[in-house]
Simulated scan of single mutants.
Amino acid sequence: MKKTSTRLADGRELIYYDSRDDLVRDDPDRRPLEATSTASEIRYDPLLDEWVAIASHRQGRIYHPPADECPLCPSRDGRLSEIPAADYEVVVFENRFPSLTSAVTGAATGSVTDQDAAPGEQRSGPLPQLARPGVGRCEVVCFTSDHDASFADLTPAQVALVLEAWTDRTAELSALPGVEQVFCFENRGKEIGVTLGHPHGQIYAYPFVTPRTERMLAATAAHRRRTGRNLFDDLLAAERADGRRVVSAGEHWTAFVPYAARWPYEVHLYPNRRVGDLLALNEAERAEFCTLYLDLLQRFDRLFDAEGGARTPYIAGWHQAPGRSGAPGTGGELALHMELFTIRRTVGKLKHLAGSESGMDVFINDVSPEQAARRLREVSP
Results as ranks from 00 to 15, higher is better:
residue 252 H to A: 11
residue 369 P to L: 12
residue 133 P to I: 02
residue 75 S to P: 02
residue 278 L to D: 06
residue 366 D to F: 00
residue 76 R to C: 01
residue 367 V to T: 05
residue 117 A to T: 05
residue 88 Y to E: 09
residue 288 E to R: 04
residue 104 V to W: 09
residue 216 M to W: 03
residue 21 D to M: 06
residue 115 Q to W: 12
residue 178 G to E: 07
residue 282 N to R: 07
residue 267 V to Q: 12
residue 294 L to T: 14
residue 234 D to C: 02
residue 310 A to W: 09
residue 103 A to Y: 04
residue 186 E to K: 07
residue 376 L to I: 14
residue 36 T to D: 01
residue 54 I to A: 15
residue 246 V to G: 01
residue 135 V to G: 15
residue 330 T to Q: 14
residue 64 H to T: 14
residue 107 A to C: 08
residue 149 A to C: 11
residue 330 T to P: 04
residue 90 V to M: 01
residue 301 D to V: 10
residue 175 A to R: 14
residue 70 C to N: 07
residue 353 L to I: 05
residue 17 Y to D: 02
residue 232 F to Y: 15
residue 331 G to R: 15
residue 164 E to T: 12
residue 321 A to H: 10
residue 237 A to T: 04
residue 73 C to H: 00
residue 233 D to I: 00
residue 65 P to R: 13
residue 278 L to T: 07
residue 185 F to E: 03
residue 3 K to I: 15
residue 381 P to N: 10
residue 45 D to Q: 06
residue 121 E to I: 13
residue 264 P to C: 02
residue 355 G to M: 11
residue 378 E to I: 00
residue 24 V to M: 01
residue 27 D to M: 02
residue 324 R to G: 05
residue 66 P to C: 06
residue 188 R to F: 11
residue 56 S to N: 10
residue 205 A to H: 11
residue 293 Y to C: 04
residue 335 A to L: 03
residue 232 F to T: 00
residue 54 I to K: 09
residue 309 G to L: 08
residue 54 I to M: 15
residue 307 E to I: 02
residue 185 F to I: 03
residue 298 Q to W: 07
residue 295 D to Q: 09
residue 100 L to A: 05
residue 210 T to S: 11
residue 155 T to S: 15
residue 5 S to R: 12
residue 284 A to N: 07
residue 156 P to V: 14
residue 218 A to N: 04
residue 243 G to C: 09
residue 208 F to K: 09
residue 238 A to I: 08
residue 221 A to F: 02
residue 197 G to D: 15
residue 293 Y to S: 10
residue 165 A to P: 08
residue 182 V to Q: 05
residue 192 I to G: 03
residue 186 E to G: 11
residue 85 A to R: 00
residue 261 A to Y: 07
residue 89 E to P: 04
residue 328 P to K: 11
residue 131 A to S: 15
residue 49 D to Y: 02
residue 249 A to Q: 12
residue 114 D to T: 13
residue 320 Q to Y: 03
residue 336 L to R: 05
residue 95 N to P: 12
residue 302 R to A: 15
residue 161 L to N: 08
residue 154 L to F: 12
residue 367 V to C: 04
residue 296 L to V: 14
residue 158 Q to A: 10
residue 123 R to P: 08
residue 214 E to P: 00
residue 266 E to G: 12
residue 25 R to I: 00
residue 254 T to W: 06
residue 49 D to N: 09
residue 246 V to C: 06
residue 350 L to G: 01
residue 223 H to N: 10
